[in-house]
């Protein structure tokens, strides 16, 4: 990529000396500044958006898509290797892995997205409120978030889930309770950085109310890093939900959930690796799709990086 790019450009004098750093620099600038990329932002947005939508639809219609009943046990074919009948093999109870991976998408993707959406909205609103108003409310809310940040996340989530009881719903509540401070922090610092900007003063002079200034001018300008954080958090949250499931505080057996399926498969790693492989690959692929989508949304939201 970089090689072809350099060939296409007129050579600069320093490049003839074969300076490594110079080559790196020109490649770096070329990649972004001149819009020389694999595809335009719009194309990437469509591709990753479709992939994410595909995953979402799959999780919504998981019951219809699964070839077998994901909870149907058949010990005669336990730990069977992948075959034509069972494309991804079976687990220790002879349940079809493909069906379980598809069924697990509902618990994993759906709950994760819900969780991330909730903490993004709540955290951002709190952060913007603190950054905009400052003073005592800011100090109090930020100390509370400090307390949450000081706890080891999963341990605190375990405590919350322990108090509320098990189940996926309570696991979501527990994780939401410990994850909002990160978003509040980002939103607050972004708000502080932008608060004195001339364009916000100009909006005030244009007669816009504070609510309007915050939602129409400030939020669109600070939402980029927050969105990227939440997109990157999808993977983390999937893993933490899985972790709670593993501890018996999240999804309960026999409900299929990728994280708990992986932890179930740990003891089979040497004898039947496909049992761990399929939910792992499912997590890997979904996390990657949502990460790339997050990057693309950030690029798209910023008119400066759009291709013209």
């Amino acid at each position: 990529m970089r090689q072809t790019f350099l060939k296409n450009r007129e050579k600069r004098p320093l490049q003839k000396q074969g300076h490594k750093s110079v080559t790196m620099y020109s490649g770096m600038y070329g990649g972004r500044r001149h819009g020389r990329r694999a595809g335009s932002v719009k194309t990437r947005l469509i591709v990753f958006g479709l992939l994410a939508a595909f995953l979402l639809l799959g999780s919504v219609f998981s019951a219809q898509l699964a070839p077998y009943d994901p909870d149907l046990q058949n010990l005669e074919i336990a730990r069977a290797a992948p075959s034509a009948a069972h494309l991804l093999g079976t687990d220790r109870f002879g349940r079809d892995m493909l069906s379980r991976v598809i069924a697990g998408s509902r618990a994993s993707i759906f709950s994760t997205l819900l969780l991330v959406a909730v903490i993004t909205v709540i955290g951002t609103l709190i952060g913007v409120f603190c950054g905009w108003n400052g003073k005592r409310a800011d100090a109090v809310l930020m100390r509370i978030s400090d307390i949450f940040l000081a706890f080891p996340g999963l341990v605190f989530a375990m405590a919350v889930a322990g108090v509320l009881g098990g189940g996926l719903h309570n696991a979501i509540v527990a994780l939401a309770a410990i994850s909002w401070p990160k978003y509040a922090r980002i939103a607050r610092s972004q708000t502080l950085a932008q608060r004195e900007s001339a364009y916000l003063k100009a909006a005030k002079l244009a007669g816009s109310s504070t609510t309007k200034i915050i939602f129409k001018h400030l939020l669109p300008n600070i939402i980029g890093p927050i969105l990227v954080t939440s997109m990157l958090d999808i993977g983390t949250m999937m893993m933490e939900l899985a972790g709670l499931s593993f501890l018996g505080l999240g999804a309960k057996p026999p409900t299929a959930e990728w994280g708990s399926m992986m932890s179930d498969a740990r003891s089979l790693m040497t004898t039947a690796p496909w049992v761990a492989f399929s939910p792992g690959a499912a997590i890997f692929l979904s996390v990657m799709v949502f990460n790339l989508l997050g990057d693309t949304i950030r690029d798209y939201a910023d008119p400066r990086s759009r291709d013209f």
Partner: peptide, 11 residues
Amino acid sequence: FQQPADSFDPR
């Protein structure tokens, strides 16, 4: 304002 570019919302 003093800085023309900063006085317009970049979005």
